[in-house]
């Protein structure tokens, strides 16, 4: 399910100027695909400003998200891969952003669980970080 969800929602970008921009670009496919409203993107940025960079759940990887009521239309997930990492607050380097939008807990948890499985594999981060194109990124996700 994760692979299917991400198929059309992956972007690979060389670099971004700041973490806010990273979240915006990462979330664009979700907005265009009708998963979220524009305001959800602002809410995600706001969330990091307010609560600190806890969305950086492991070195190099962030999962920007906010609450369902902040503008989620349907459950979805998108991925942004940066070739040059960007700094989140507190100097946290991030090169992968998985944007989460949750509206339905079953499907959301299923996606989360698959994502967790992927990230718990020892070499997952290495593979993802060396991927250079949408196709290569997608190949890492099974």
């Amino acid at each position: 399910m994760l692979k299917k969800m991400l198929e059309n929602n992956i972007n690979v970008v060389n670099e971004v100027s700041n973490w806010e921009e990273a979240i915006k670009i990462a979330a664009t496919p979700l907005k265009e695909g009708g998963f979220i409203k524009e305001e959800y993107i602002d809410a995600m940025v706001e969330n990091v400003v307010k609560n600190g960079p806890y969305v950086v759940i492991m070195p190099g990887l962030a999962i920007p998200h906010s609450r369902p009521e902040d503008g989620v239309l349907k459950t979805g997930m998108s991925l942004l891969k940066l070739k040059e990492s960007v700094k989140f607050p507190e100097d946290k380097d991030v090169e992968l952003l998985f944007v989460l939008a949750a509206n339905d807990s079953n499907m959301h948890l299923q996606l989360i669980s698959e994502l967790t499985n992927l990230l718990m594999e020892d070499d997952a981060m290495e593979k993802l970080s060396s991927a250079k194109s949408k196709e290569e990124v997608l190949a890492c996700i099974c």
Binding site: K50, V55, I57, L100, H108, S113, T116, L119
Partner: peptide, 18 residues
């Protein structure tokens, strides 16, 4: 626990549960 209980905490719980 996290702010919304959906993102990082869900990932953390899922990983730890496994």
């Amino acid at each position: 626990a996290c702010d919304a209980g959906l993102g990082s905490s869900a990932m953390g719980a899922s990983a730890f549960r496994k």
